[in-house]
Design a protein around this nucleic acid. Structure first.
Lengths: 174, 174
DNA sequence: CCTAATCTTCATTAAAAATTGAACCTCGGC
DNA sequence: GCCGAGGTTCAATTTTTAATGAAGATTAGG
């Protein structure tokens, strides 16, 4: 419907034609997408990580966007997430403007970071809540059985928080 | 717009007026909803479980629907989920037609069941995938570094599956 | 300091997931 | 067998979550 004479809406300087994902890259992406789903992480983030993981060299912003055919916004947000969780490292060669990214060597450490940020906050936020619940349930005359049930919940929650803190020590500053 | 003369669309025989949730029930629900989110379980399921958890007596279908102001469909599906994961028990008193529900005594066992069904399948499905990835990456001439990276992923996945199987033994038949 | 390339933000849009409710089973009592 | 209370199913709808992309911020180099 639009006249084709309009300037093509390129946002970027001309870029190389990026290849679609190869079969093994597609399969690896499926793997990471599944893992990400378990941890409550978006598909687009998993796709970016997978691409970097299967790449022999660090990749720059445009390369990621091109090969995944993903919007600038998603690439930016995805890289931010991965950076914030210590899952990727920036390789800055002197003289180049662009940053290039590669996965951090330790996947285990990366996972720990994700779990810390996705799971722990939920557990920790519950501590005061549960104490409130016990207090007001008591005040409102709940039966002792119910009070005891909730108290067990609280003990269980505390132990979970402690255990997590133990298993997932805070990251050493880099 | 419709004439108000139409018969009120009551689906059920007249039921008692159910009370809205009390403050401590609301807070407990928030707790369970947060936990459910971590595990990838729906809000409505968490609400039902929370209601049963805070109740001194088993509750029937209509009671749950009434107090939570939830549709029949959601109550039915929610109870099914909770049943299927061994999180609630049916109490059938002789002479009564309706079933009444209460939480199973062991919350720990319930959680194990949920984790088994929500998390493990994702891990297990990955085993063959990763072998494929290695094979076709090799065939396509990926660098040894990348192959090794993926192989580490595979070893890590295997160990995760084994560990999970150990921590989460199959339920004894009831 | 300007400029242009690079990246980020965030309101809008699209996609995915959960909820609803009406039609449809099922089963116990008569 | 039939009736109806009790529950289930599933297509349609609503709600929630993720992706998009244009406008705006940032920064290195001149």
């Amino acid at each position: 419907m639009k006249p084709p004479s309009e300037k093509p809406q390129e946002k970027r300087k001309d870029r190389p034609a990026y290849l679609p994902l190869s079969p093994h890259e597609v399969e690896l992406t499926q793997f990471f997408v599944r893992m990400a789903a378990i941890l409550g992480v978006q598909r687009s983030v998993a796709e970016i990580y997978s691409l970097l993981y299967a790449s022999p060299k660090p990749l720059d912003f445009d390369h990621i966007q091109g090969r995944l055919e993903m919007s600038q916004g998603s690439v930016s947000q995805g890289l931010k997430f991965l950076r914030d969780h210590g899952m990727i490292l920036s390789i800055k060669e002197k003289g180049t403007k662009r940053e290039r990214w590669e996965p951090t060597p330790s996947l285990a450490a990366s996972l720990v970071n994700i779990i810390r940020s996705q799971v722990l906050p939920g557990l920790e936020k519950s501590k005061p809540t549960l104490q409130n619940v016990i207090n007001s349930a008591t005040a409102q005359g709940a039966t002792p059985e119910v009070i005891e049930r909730i108290a067990r919940l609280q003990r269980w929650n505390s132990r979970a928080v402690e255990l997590s803190a133990l298993l997932l020590p805070p990251p050493a500053n880099e």
